[in-house]
Design a protein around this nucleic acid. Sequence first.
DNA 1: TCTGGCGTTGTTCCC
DNA 2: GGGGAACAACGCCAG
Length: 505
Amino acid sequence: MTTIHWFRKGLRLHDNPALLAAVREGTELRPVFVLDPWFVKNAKVGPNRWRFLAQTLADLDAGLRKLKSRLFVVRGSPEEVFPKLFKTWDVKRITWELDTEPYARTRDERVEKLAKECGVEVACRVGHTLYRVEKIIDANLGKTPLTYQSLQKLANKLGHPPKPIGTLTELPEPCHLQEEAASNASYDPPSLKELGVKEEKLEPCFYPGGETEALARLEKYMERKSWVCKFEKPKTSPNSLQPSTTVLSPYLKFGCLSPRTMYHQLLQVYKGSSHTQPPVSLLGQLLWREFFYTVGATTPNFDRMEGNPVCRQIPWVRDEKLMDAWTHARTGYPFIDAIMTQLRKEGWVHHLARHAVACFLTRGDLWQPWEDGMKVFEELLLDADWSLNAGNWMWLSASAFFNSYFRVYSPIAFGKNTDKHGDYIRKYLPQLAKYPESFIYEPWKAPLGVQRAAGCIIGQDYPRPIVDHSVVMKRNLERMGQAYRAGKEKKASEAKPPPKKKMKK
DNA sequence: TCTGGCGTTGTTCCC
DNA sequence: GGGGAACAACGCCAG
């Protein structure tokens, strides 16, 4: 008799309630990850994230082997794979961690149905969010909280999230695998080649995937107690040469790190010391994640403008050339292009850098739909997380959550706050490295002599700006104003439906 | 029903 | 360089 634990996110051995639920005396355990070749071929996932996944699966397999088990990476779609596994392995039970994304929910419903047809019991546990989403909604009387403050209040009402359960350090004897299953190479974690990644084209790896790395990274930051206690997100730099924040986001996205583990470690560090508070504190960052997960889980069409009840309808105008220039770091604004270059190379950029490029693409300058920008992030970010990505793009495009659309990030001035000399630009756009400080953010203003001396002619070696920020920003502010007014009118007309005849009291 | 305060992270100009 | 006001003025929410 066998139990399968199906890994999807939650790729870890620590604080993994669903995995623990699969471990039982007298039952064999088969830890499974399903790799769908169709998805590998067709999904828009950049090489950096494939590499991260490959490293994560290898680490998970190694961790399980220390427990005399292994990871079974099974090739196929879940619907194809499981009915076969249920039969050949004599499976009586399957466990997985609850996933709140619509795509995953549909998938899980289908697999649950198949399991029932095969007489296999299904057990789900919450491990990816601090709270079970339904608990938050219930505490809010059935409504989705739409502001951070309301989420925070609800979290306070619920109390601290459950403490993490420990790390799985040993498995009962019957869970140990037989030699034959352990050595079957057809279930080995995928190579980069299998994932369609051309190794020779990969950039250096700064953020290796896996639980081991995640816990080491967490520990490294938690040791810096004073830094943790003083952490204020808005005061960290978007353009430092080394990340000014923890870069734990990719590990949280894949579940290499449990948010509850991080939460309770933060409480330990805070204990007895004065410390910053949400929303700006490190713990506050986990609540932001929780906020977007909650809204994303309960809002229809959350990753689209149309049919999305929380998203303002704005008449963006698609322009392939503008979109392409932004995507491939050719806008002619060095701060923007440097960020897009770092994103493509390293798979991570600072949150405020994301703000700058997202604002630039949408309401600030290029007037492109936020959905298109979201898709580029989805491809390139190691931490691309469905709810957070969509939520933040709506935020930055002033489509939802954030409404002060007149606060526009300047592609010239914003970066100077934390990097006057432009070292960040020089690092990621080396063609501009020799520009004097006075022109590094606006190289097109440099006299030709200066351009020649710097060895980079604008319009030839680096593009001219594709738009004039001060001009398009003013036009876009007007467009935003119009869209807001139109939205308000529509709301008002919906609030006052065609007068039903009512008797006055 | 109305109002004032507030919202994780704006810019520019002036003193 | 630090601080404050103007810019033009949003939606949410508590009272």
